[in-house]
Design a protein around this nucleic acid. Structure first.
Lengths: 140, 140
DNA sequence: GTAATTGCAAAGAGTTTGCAAGCGC
DNA sequence: GCGCTTGCAAACTCTTTGCAATTAC
């Protein structure tokens, strides 16, 4: 796993490269996503950014996460219809999802999956595994 | 895989058992879901039901799919933030998702996944694998 | 200075809910 | 007839968009 500072630097560099401006809001959103392991919703990111920049707009957060996704610095994940969540961990990893409290935890599978040879012409690029169940807290 | 007629009968029986009424709308929604392999959105189900019952309400479809989910006859699936999709295939199966056109196809994995022993107290109940890539049509 | 970005407010999707009328049992 | 279910419309939540003011470069 790369260091967060490296990722932040890579992000800033790529922004420069693409002619995108390095605004405090943009950096703050990415920093929060990097430091969060809860796969936050846009609303949750917004609440965090507001602590530092009280006048930030929710629309800005929406626009920023979309930019991050397009740049490959964040992934959109979704497990219920409710709302979209974002994840700055772009390594291949999988999720433990608690069906009771909705918490999501990253896991790394030792052995990959054996994808079937014959996918009927489908060309796979990657996969993700969601394991549903009860987290330690909700097991009781 | 069970026959569709059997599933429909099971659904009707379970409705009776639970004191739920067998209304044409309810049956139509489940039939459409059973006969569809496209994991339709609520809107898409609604459009189908309307062909048979033009005065059906979208709200009824929403209420019906929720009932179906609670009864275990349908699963809610979600791959983008856009909208929720439903699937009447309740066997353990997985999905090929085209990142270009958004189509979803069911697959069955020969060998299951080896879940890690240590899930840090998490008690797994099931899992699903989503394989992202390009479908035969979009490969070109 | 210029162009990208922001904040605001309004608009747009998708979904849920309250209620009177209607229908299955 | 009773009570669940429906259709309608309104409300609600989540997300996107238009636009003038602002900010990074």
């Amino acid at each position: 796993m790369e260091l967060k500072e490296d990722m932040l630097k890579a992000f800033v560099d790529k922004c420069r490269e693409q002619g995108l401006k390095i605004t405090p809001q943009r950096v703050a959103v990415y920093e929060i996503l990097l430091n969060s392991h809860t796969h936050p919703t846009v609303e949750e990111i917004y609440e965090e950014v507001k602590k530092k920049y009280p006048f930030v707009s929710l629309a800005t957060v929406y626009r920023t996460v979309e930019t991050l996704e397009q740049m490959g610095f964040a992934k959109r994940v979704c497990y219920w219809g409710n709302s979209v969540r974002y994840d700055a961990n772009t390594e291949e990893h999988h999720h433990l999802i608690c069906t009771n409290c909705g918490s999501i935890k990253d896991i790394y599978l030792e052995d990959g999956i054996n994808l079937p040879e014959n996918l009927e012409g489908f060309k796979p690029a990657g996969y993700s595994v969601n394991i549903y169940g009860l987290c330690p807290n909700c097991k009781n």
